[in-house]
Each structure stands twice: as structure tokens, then as C-alpha cells.
Computed example of a mutant assay.
Amino acid sequence: MSAPLGVILAGGKATRMGGGDKGRLALRGASLFAHVTDRLAPQVAGLALNANGDPARFADLGLPVLPDSLPDFPGPLAGVLAGLDWAAEAGAETLVSVAADTPFFPRDLVARLQAEARGMAHPLVLAATPDPKRGRVRHPTFGLWPVALREDLRAALMAGTRKVVLWTEAHGGREALFEDPGDPFFNVNTPEDLARAEALAP
């Protein structure tokens, strides 16, 4: 399977951090955007940022900025759709999404998502981690998405679908289980989370 394109999902409103762009928060002297880009860029054939509002504020990142094509912040699936539209224009077959506020995800994320997708008609895989109570927890902002299903996703969003797993399960989506030490998909939602990330950062 060829290298996918990648999109960093930053289209939310960051209400629990008081608004603004969470990706700009500093962690060990670098922004969350920088940590995420450092991990994802070597794994993909090209990288873009899904974000809403004035794209000029991200000019220093040097990335294409992809706004949601649907109004009212409909959630991560809208960011995935924006990425899929961009990937389609570039002639790519697949897209990998990551969250902008998750600085410790695996440096082999893409390879492991692709390995789980082998044999699938449409490579559609979400990341998951073990959970002692629920068996496993899915991380729906971390996924491998087929460009071939973008119009189906657009129709689902326009019909009101917002929950990622409802759409992926309807298309036979799989899960790639990441049993890495610690919490590889730890995300920064609150000031307390940022303090914890400082302690966890290598």
C-alpha cells in the first residue's frame, strides 16, 4: 500500500482550553502542532491542516489549510471529509488523520493502520487501545480513510451523522490495537492535561 496523505484535525473550538488554537500551546519549548507534525510528516506523502476561521494565522506552519465544508463545527468527520477532498485532488487513494492535541502518538502509526487494512476492499481503520473495563477504546480522530468513500461520507454528514464509529461500522471498518506503554493517544483538553503532558514528554 502506497504512503497516504495526512491531515491534522484542528477544526474544533477548544472550549475546555478557553478557546483559540490548542495546537499553539507550548509543550517542552515547542507547540503541539510542532510535536504532531514531527511525528506524522515522515509517515505520509504530504500533510495538511484542517482548521476553520482565517487560514492566514497558520501561514508559519507552511501547510495547506483545509476548512470544514459543512457549517457549525459538525465534528471530526467533517475534517476527515475536507482531507479526503484534498487527497482526491492530489490523486491519493488514502488519508490518515491525527488530532492536533495529541503529541505522543506512535511514530509507526501509519504502517500499523495499513497493516490492519490489508485485504479490505476499502481501507478503513481506526486506532484503538486496550481498556481493562471495556476491552478496548477507539480513538476516532486517528484513522486510515479511503478516498473512494468520500461522497458516501459527505452524504452521511449532510444527513446528520456525527459519530465517527457509526459511519465506520456501516462500512466494515476495522480497529488497529496499539498496546504501547503509557497512553499513546493522550490528548490535551484542559490546562491540567497540558501540565500532565509536560510530565509525560520524553
Rank of each mutant, 00 (worst) to 15 (best):
S31A: 08
A201F: 03
G19H: 09
R174N: 03
A128V: 06
V96R: 03
K133Q: 15
A3R: 13
T37C: 11
N52Y: 08
T15I: 12
D180Y: 08
P123K: 13
E198A: 15
W145Q: 00
E169Y: 13
T190W: 02
Q114R: 10
A56M: 08
P123Y: 08
L149A: 02
T190H: 05
D60K: 03
G53M: 10
L194H: 14
A159D: 15
G182C: 08
L113H: 03
N187P: 00
T129G: 12
G12F: 07
D60F: 06
T141G: 13
A159P: 12
V96M: 06
G23T: 02
W167G: 12
L124A: 05
L25F: 02
P64N: 05
A10C: 09
S31F: 10
A51S: 14
D68S: 10
R134A: 15
G172A: 13
E89D: 11
T141N: 09
D21K: 04
V188A: 05
D72G: 06
W145F: 00
A14P: 00
P191F: 08
W86V: 01
L126V: 12
P184L: 14
G75T: 04
R57I: 15
R24L: 13
F58N: 14
G19C: 05
R154Y: 00
G79A: 04
L126D: 05
A14E: 01
G11R: 06
R138F: 10
P146I: 04
D72I: 09
D21P: 06
F58M: 07
F105E: 06
A115H: 12
T102C: 09
L144K: 01
L47E: 06
P67Y: 08
T168P: 08
E116R: 15
A155K: 13
A156T: 00
G160Y: 07
E93Y: 03
A199F: 00
P67T: 07
G11H: 03
L166S: 13
P55A: 15
G6D: 06
L157N: 01
A59S: 14
D21Q: 12
T94M: 01
P140Q: 07
G11K: 01
M1C: 01
D54L: 12
A195D: 14
E89I: 00
L166N: 12
T129Y: 11
D180H: 11
R154C: 04
A121F: 04
A121N: 06
A90C: 05
R16G: 00
D152L: 04
V96D: 05
L49D: 14
A117Q: 00
P64E: 10
T161N: 10
A30N: 09
A92Q: 00
A34W: 09
P55H: 14
T129W: 12
R196N: 06
N50P: 02
P140K: 05
L5W: 10
D54Y: 08
D72V: 08
G62P: 09
A199K: 15
P202V: 12
V44P: 03
A128T: 10
L124D: 08
D180Q: 07
D21G: 05
V147P: 00
N50V: 15
G79F: 02
K22Q: 09
N50S: 15
E192Q: 15
S97V: 09
L200K: 11
A87L: 06
